[in-house]
Write a protein that binds this DNA or RNA. Structure first.
Length: 504
RNA sequence: GCCCUCAUCGUCUAGAGGCCUAGGACGCCACCCUUUCAAGGUGGAGAUCAGGGGUUCGAAUCCCCUUGGGGGCACCA
């Protein structure tokens, strides 16, 4: 079943934290490879030295691993050495390959040194824009004699860039998900730079040198690369390399339909992680952005997605990012987690809450486990745990007395109700402090007084938790404990005296 | 400006000529359950398949045009 001829890659550039778009593209490559038993590799495109950082490298590598998108070749997990037959997998460590390739092109006159200065290029651009012409390199250095080159060098005083000659004609390919695409090279913007004046190679060049060297069979990437593909094919051709199969994925869009941007959509995977989105939810959601199994299944594990993945079923049109749907899927997955697993995953969020003072102490694993039956189905995200039941671990609960009085009751009734409830609850000892034991006597109280259970329960709820929405009341009181419950009731009763006297 | 590309409910999508009076899911609404909030269950509103021409006995599905959206055109990736 393994197919050694299938080799795909994700090649992010470490110029920012792991982006949702990168994660999705990585996932699709990963799914494609895993489904057929091919190889998935990770390569760092770090030739933009000015913007690349090691911190971003780590973020991307860690984030992808966290999601479960792991590679067969590439940097090791802990930042240790690269693994695989084509190591190293980071471009700044592969400069020799690019130098050799550009020398070959230069020697064959398929590329040439370009002495144009940024100012000259800028002026060209402006003139073209003014003339409503598409921007393109004018070819100033395309046919210089040796003497002219020497003169230009002396004149500009800076080392030349290397420009690739774009041959006339039409370049086409059979796109994996869009069928035939053909582009006239006249529309490519003229000869393009493949190596900067400082000797560092540019994206279009390194990507094909590495893809060829690493025997990439399928290049699966975002739709935004469609117009780059002819350049890549031309380069591959000039170097005599085989042309891989190209497949262009639909883009993830902002809700307004534009290409996803940090400004309009939260794009860092880290940020979702920090909010308590779990990998299962994120992966499930990403997979369904532009793909579906063609069945009516919605909630699938990574393995199930791998099993069903079919590149032919990938959508062509872009998909708007829908956070609401992500939240729903995340909730689905949180509900499916095993207790031990969920407790582990909740831990960091509880610790964070302790750190910033939203709670005063940490519950034990057993405390959390006891809560799970009533809490698990109420968590859209892991971080929501603090919002939901943080009041359990707060020492001094600040409750607005006005909030304690249920809609249909006045302060005096509420005071009376809470006092009576306090009396009944205090009769329980630590042993009978169980939900099943606490509820019946309070129901009897309500019955005797002709009250509505909901009113009394709401008063108790707010008095003991400070909130009008909580997990089931008696489970909550059990979690709170006898002493704290009685203490909070006392505080509320006292506060109500004041309110009653002041007249609300 | 030029080139490329896309087009089914608000959103993600099913649909590869007759199974479609277009299915599912999210969201929304109602009801049920219920001490609140969720979850869950049931039901509902919601797409003249962007528009117009063809092809065909028959088109959401094939072709053309129009319109609209998106992407690209760097010594960024």
């Amino acid at each position: 079943m393994p197919d050694p001829t299938i080799r795909v890659r994700i090649a992010p550039s470490p110029t920012g934290p792991l982006h949702i778009g990168t994660a999705r593209t990585a996932l699709f490559n990963f799914l494609f490879a895993r489904h057929v038993g091919g190889t998935f590799l990770f390569r760092l495109e770090d030739t933009d030295v000015a913007r690349s950082t090691v911190a971003y490298e780590r973020d991307i590598i860690d984030g992808l691993h966290w999601l479960g998108v792991t590679w067969d070749e590439g940097p090791g997990i802990a930042g240790d050495g690269d693994i695989g037959p084509y190591a190293p997998y980071r471009q700044m460590l592969r400069l020799g390959f690019y130098k050799a390739a550009s020398d070959r092109l230069l020697a064959a006159d398929l590329a040439y040194p370009c002495f144009c200065t940024p100012d000259e290029l800028d002026a060209d651009r402006k003139a073209q824009e003014a003339a409503k012409q598409p921007p393109r390199y004018v070819g100033r250095c395309a046919h210089l004699t040796a003497e002219e080159r020497a003169a230009r060098l002396a004149e500009t005083g800076r080392p030349p860039a290397t420009r690739f000659r774009v041959r006339p004609g039409v370049v086409g390919w059979n796109d994996l998900i869009r069928d035939r695409i053909e582009i006239d090279t006249a529309n490519l913007g003229g000869d393009f730079v493949i190596v900067r004046g400082d000797g560092t190679p540019l994206y279009h060049f390194v990507v094909i040198v590495d893809d060829a060297e690493m025997k990439i069979s399928h290049v699966i990437r975002g739709e935004d690369h469609i117009s780059n593909t002819p350049k890549h094919i031309l380069l591959l051709e000039a170097l005599g390399h085989p042309i891989p199969v190209f497949g262009h994925l639909p883009l993830i869009l902002n809700p307004d339909g534009s290409k996803m941007s940090k400004r309009k959509t939260q794009t860092a995977v880290d940020d979702y992680r920090a909010e308590g989105f779990i990998r299962e939810g994120l992966i499930n959601y990403f997979a369904y952005l532009g793909w579906s199994p063609g069945t009516e299944e919605d909630v699938l594990t990574l393995d199930e997605i791998i099993e069903r993945f079919d590149i032919d079923k990938v959508q062509k049109g872009g998909a708007k990012f829908d956070r609401g749907r992500l939240e729903w899927l995340n909730g689905q997955w949180i509900r499916r987690l095993e207790p031990d697993d969920l407790i582990d995953r909740l831990r960091p969020f509880l610790e964070a809450a302790l750190d910033d003072g939203r709670i005063d102490r940490l519950p034990s694993d057993e405390d959390v486990r006891a809560l799970l039956p009533v809490v698990q189905e109420r968590l859209p995200t892991l971080a929501a745990i603090v919002d939901l039941v943080g009041f359990l671990w707060v020492d001094d609960l600040a409750v607005d007395p006005a909030l304690i009085v249920p809609k249909r009751w006045d302060a005096a009734t509420t005071h009376e109700g809470l006092a009576a409830a306090r009396e009944i609850l205090s009769a329980h000892d630590a042993v009978t402090w169980e939900a099943d034991e606490l509820e019946p006597p309070l129901r009897e109280l309500v019955e005797a007084r002709g009250w509505k259970a909901g009113d009394l329960f709401m008063a108790i709820r707010v008095a003991t938790t400070g909130r009008t929405a909580t997990p089931p009341l008696f489970d909550t009181l059990v979690a709170l404990g006898r002493e704290r419950t009685l203490g909070r009731l006392d505080a509320a009763i006292e506060a109500l005296v004041t309110v009653a006297e002041t007249g609300r």
